[in-house]
């Protein structure tokens, strides 16, 4: 990129007469095979369930009602608040928040450290953080399960050095799921923060230092406000996939650590499922994600003006 073009560069329009044709395949493929399916899912969430999977085309609010009320086996008991699904949603939000905080605590210093390396070694550090992102998430989660299982290498090592007397029961706990989410999405936190620290002008810090600001004050009051968009982007990139995660709760957790992803999956497996309920759960998850993304988009546009 040539220097000095900056934000004032003109928009290139060499292909503008054919841009409709160029964009048409993207519109068609994503429109037909993702946008239409999502709208169809919205419709399904208002249909009546078929007992062996699938739906009956009859309007019903039963799927959403089921989240909040327990009306007994035949649906004619006086409604009571059903806590099971609310608990699953609250647990998912807490797990995702926890994973986000953990990723931020480890990810920010890492991103900062890498961004302040000399140009020749920076790429290598960054590459090392990026590789795990491209390694199959299933294999990474299985590896974590292997590591922390009851008689796995972690417990063996802790027993050998005498920190514990009996193996820690880590697998099937909320902690294991938390660890799995943190481990899965850690690179997502590092990369956007790295990108914003790399663009940060350290002359600002030097100016603060010349005026006798202590180092940690410089970090908190000068650097953090400037790199905030990167931090928010990182938090969203960790929070959103954690919220709908399936592999970590399924492989590392058990029945007591159920999250939204497992709940949804259960509705579509075998004959015991409930498609409208699964569609409704997916719609609620999607709405939560959209709210987070809208909040982010608004924060960004405010940042730019």
């Amino acid at each position: 990129m040539a220097a000095g073009t900056g934000s004032g560069r003109t928009v290139s329009a060499t292909f503008s007469p054919v841009r409709g044709w160029l964009l048409l395949p993207s519109w068609l493929v994503i429109g037909i095979f993702l946008l239409v399916p999502v709208l169809l899912m919205l419709v399904y969430s208002f249909l009546t369930k078929e007992f062996r999977g699938g739906v009956i085309w009859e309007f019903s609010l039963a799927a959403y009602d089921q989240f909040v009320f327990d009306r007994g086996l035949f649906g004619d008991d006086p409604p009571q608040i059903e806590w099971a699904y609310i608990t699953i949603f609250v647990r998912s939000i807490l797990q995702a928040l926890g994973a986000t905080v953990l990723c931020l605590l480890i990810g920010f210093p890492t991103a900062y450290f890498i961004a302040t390396r000399p140009a020749n070694t920076r790429a290598i550090w960054l590459f090392l953080v990026t590789i795990p992102y491209w390694v199959n998430l299933l294999i990474r989660t299985v590896s974590m399960k292997f590591l922390i299982r009851d008689n796995g290498p972690l417990n063996e090592a802790l027993l050998a050095i005498g920190v514990i007397d009996a193996p820690l029961q880590l697998i099937n706990t909320n902690f294991a799921v938390q660890l799995g989410l943190f481990y899965s999405y850690l690179p997502f936190m590092v990369l956007p923060i790295y990108a914003s620290v790399e663009r940060y002008n350290f002359a600002l810090s030097e100016a603060a230092s010349d005026l006798y600001a202590p180092k940690w004050t410089i970090l908190r009051s000068i650097l953090l406000p400037v790199v905030k968009p990167g931090i928010i982007a990182g938090c969203i990139l960790v929070f959103v996939p954690s919220l709908g995660a399936f592999l970590a709760p399924d492989l590392l957790g058990g029945a007591k650590t159920f999250m939204i992803g497992s709940l949804i999956e259960e509705q579509f497996k075998g004959n015991a499922g409930n498609w409208p309920f699964g569609a409704a759960a997916s719609m609620i998850l999607l709405s939560m994600v959209l709210v987070v993304l809208l909040f982010y988009a608004r924060a960004q546009s405010r940042e730019q003006t």
Partner: peptide
């Protein structure tokens, strides 16, 4: 942007 599990459900339904 759409969570993977939601894409999966929507595609299956479609």
């Amino acid at each position: 942007m759409v969570p993977e599990i939601v894409t999966a459900v929507a595609t299956l339904i479609f």
